[in-house]
Amino acid sequence: MVDPILRVKGATKHFGALVACDHVDFDLKPGEIHAVIGPNGAGKSTFIKLVAGEHVPNSGEFQFCGENIGALSAAQRAKAGLARTFQVSSVVNEFNALQNVLLAVQGASGETFSFFKSAMRDDELMGPATKFLMRAGLEDRSSVLASDLSHGERRQLEIAMALAMEPKVFLLDEPMAGIGPGGSKVLTDILDQLRIEAPILLVEHDMQVVFSLADRITVLVEGRNFVTGSAEDVRKNPDVKKAYLGEVVPE
C-alpha cells in the first residue's frame, strides 16, 4: 500500500461555541482525487483552511510528505508544495493575467527579495508563466486585467497560478462555484488533467463534478467524518442521501 502524501488526524477547530471541525481525519494518496463533500455548514471550508494553514486548529495533526507541518505558516506551506485555489476567486485584480501567474512562479521560486532586476523582463519568470497560462487555456487573455476577466476565466487563472506553484498537492476549494450545474466543460477537463501533476484535495458542491472526477470521497456532516469511501460506495450509501436531505445525489 502506498503511503499517503497528506495525512490529517483529528483536525479540530472551534469558533467560540461552534465546533466547525470536530476530529476530522483525512488522507490523500499519490495520483488520486479525494473529494470532501457535505451539506452547507459541514465544515468543508474550515477544513481546507486548516490544511492550508490559514486557520490555527485547536488540535489535530497535519503530516505532509512525512513531515509535520502543524507549525508552518500558510506561506511556508504553500512553498512546501500545497497549492490552493479559493472558493470566491481571489486573484490580484489590478494585475493582468500574466502578472498574476508570474507572481505565483516567483513565489514558488522563493526569490522574492530581489530588488534590481525587472520581473517582467526576467525569462526565468516569464517562460514558465506563459507556459502555465497556456495550460489553463488563457494564452489569449494574458494582457487582460484580472478584474476584467469573466468569472470562469478567473477560475482558470486560479488554476494556472496553482499549476505555477508546481505543487505536490492541489487544494481546490469549490473550483466550480458560480459556474452552474455540471461545471463548464473546459474547467472539468482542466481539473481532470491536473491529477497528472499532483493529487488533489477537492472541496466541491457540484455533485456531478465530484462523482465524475473523484476517486475517493469523504463526507463531512456537522464537522465530523461521516463516511469515507470510493465514489461508488458513497453514491450507494443510503445514509449519505439522508444526510443531504433533499440535495440530489445523482444516480
Binding site: A52, E54, S73, A74, A75, Q76, A78, K79, A83, R84, F86, S90, V91, V92, N93, E94, F95, Q99, L102, L103, A104, Q106, G107, A108, G110, E111, T112, F113, S114, F115, F116, K117, S118, A119, M120, D122, L125, M161, A164, M165
Partner: peptide, 27 residues
Amino acid sequence: IIVNSRFGLALQAARQNVRRVTSVGID
C-alpha cells in the same frame, strides 16, 4: 527599478490581496 522588480511585484500584489500572495508562498 524597485517597483518593477520581483519585490515590487510582490509588494503591489500584497497591497491588493494578502491572502492570494500568501497562498503562492510569499511571506
